[in-house]
Design a protein around this nucleic acid. Structure first.
Ligand code: SF4
Ligand code: SF4
Lengths: 133, 133
DNA sequence: TCAATTACGGACTTCATGTATCTATAATAG
DNA sequence: CTATTATAGATACATGAAGTCCGTAATTGA
């Protein structure tokens, strides 16, 4: 069980964009180089973030990706859910109702993790930042 | 990102074994039927639990699987680690040292989840149990 | 208007892993 | 000795991740 590399790319891209806080959009070319990943593939990933409403894109010359309003409240969980989906870590095919003991335990643990990821905002991270790749 | 079905099978098998607390071992045949899974496949999974020291197996007639001493302290995390391995959810190829911001956040969240899973023992679960498949 | 730039989308390939089966072997009870 | 049961290897199959290719649309600037 692992987070996908796509999630890795998405997190780093959001870190870069948040650290930059530019007026000008950042091109996928530039973002891809810093992560040693193909631009077209990264573009696919970033489109998910666009659809999730976290960033916006502009085509054409000098286009690229830029944070949207409310960017200060974007959490790790938001980004992860946008890429990985919101399905839970554990789902069995049977349905033993609310008395199911196993599912209850695992999902409670997952919720603890998500709580942490929800409380950590990208913008908090950028404040005390010295290295950004 | 999901837990494998093998983990599902392992958790349920441990639940069954813990609920039974038998002197006689339970055969894989019986265990497999209750989960609608092939016996040989389940056997492979249970062998991992044997190697991890949680259960013991006896071959031959009336053989099967049985809990080992200290079974009361087996946690969800023990079982999950035995099947999924202990690698962390997130590992990037770069090495930015202890100042790495992203890894720090994700691993801290993972630790919260593991803490929950570590505190939940199978034996606790069995006490207030009415349905076991 | 035209050409360069940039994101978007679909189809596709490749690869790793999970899932599962089959079969042969070894050990044990009766 | 025979039936039973776990173990291990080889193999097959399905699924999803990771990545490429290419055509399309939109926008800027000359
Ligand atoms: S006990 Fe829970 S996890 Fe297990 S089969 Fe029933 S519903 Fe599923
Ligand atoms: S910032 Fe952390 S997670 Fe990102 S590339 Fe550096 S070491 Fe890896």
């Amino acid at each position: 069980m692992k987070y996908s590399k796509a999630t890795d790319y998405a997190l780093h891209t959001m870190l870069f964009l948040t650290a930059a806080t530019p007026q000008k959009p950042m091109g996928v070319q530039q973002l891809a180089e810093r992560q040693s990943v193909s631009p077209t593939y990264l573009s696919k990933i970033l489109t998910k973030l666009v659809k999730a409403g976290m960033i916006e894109s502009t085509t054409g010359v000098n286009g690229g990706y830029r944070l949207k309003r409310d960017w200060e409240n974007i959490s790790f969980l938001d980004i992860i859910h946008a890429i990985e989906g919101t399905a839970s870590l554990f789902d069995c095919s049977f349905e033993h109702g609310p008395d199911c003991p196993i599912q209850k335990v695992v999902l409670a643990a997952e919720e603890k993790m998500e709580e942490q990821l929800r409380n950590q905002k990208m913008s908090d991270l950028v404040r005390n930042l010295n290295i950004v790749n």
